[in-house]
């Protein structure tokens, strides 16, 4: 067992975990933040995407011990003072979610991308959004939503 500490959406956590415990299990089961979902557990679907020190990562492909000392952000941290993040608002406005299971992963992927590359081109945006899978929407409304949020978030 290993003692680890990280912050999740700004709140400090100290956990004792088995070395094999995945980060997504630690987030969901140990921290109780169930907004991050598990879709494949082999790093393809991206439902478990979170931000690790600002970088989108697949939390199913990481061990919890690898998050020691890091800052994690998940969908639960997007709201500020009760107001939705522009990406959350845009997903609603553009009907970019149906069942909603993949949505937190797409949101965190998009947040991570737009924070680093606010002026991302359309082509590059579609390309990066192809990292994650959605079975409901056919993606076009997701791309539109992220594009709309990018305009709003642009400095």
């Amino acid at each position: 067992m290993h003692d680890i500490a990280f912050t999740l959406n700004g709140r400090p956590w100290s956990l004792r975990v088995e070395p094999r415990r995945t980060l997504v299990d630690a987030i969901r089961d140990d921290c109780g933040a169930t907004g991050t979902h598990i879709g494949c557990e082999h790093g393809v679907c991206g439902a478990c995407t979170i931000l690790l020190d600002g970088e989108p990562v697949r939390s199913c492909l990481m061990f919890a011990v690898q998050a020691d000392g890091r800052a994690l952000r998940t969908v639960e941290g997007l709201e500020k003072d009760g107001a939705l993040h522009p990406l959350q608002r845009a997903f609603i406005d553009h009907h970019a979610l149906q069942c909603g299971f993949c949505t937190p992963g797409f949101l965190m992927l998009a947040v991570g991308v737009l924070e680093r590359t606010p002026n991302i081109s359309d082509e590059a945006l579609t390309d990066v959004l192809s990292s994650n899978l959605c079975r409901c929407t056919g993606y076009q409304n997701i791309v539109r939503a992220v594009r709309a949020a990018a305009e709003e978030m642009a400095p």
Partner: peptide, 19 residues
């Protein structure tokens, strides 16, 4: 959509979220 408010905040309740 009435479904969106919970889902977009990550506070929907899927079966694996039940503990």
């Amino acid at each position: 959509r009435v479904e969106d408010e919970a889902l977009i905040r990550g506070v929907g309740r899927f079966v694996d979220d039940i503990v």
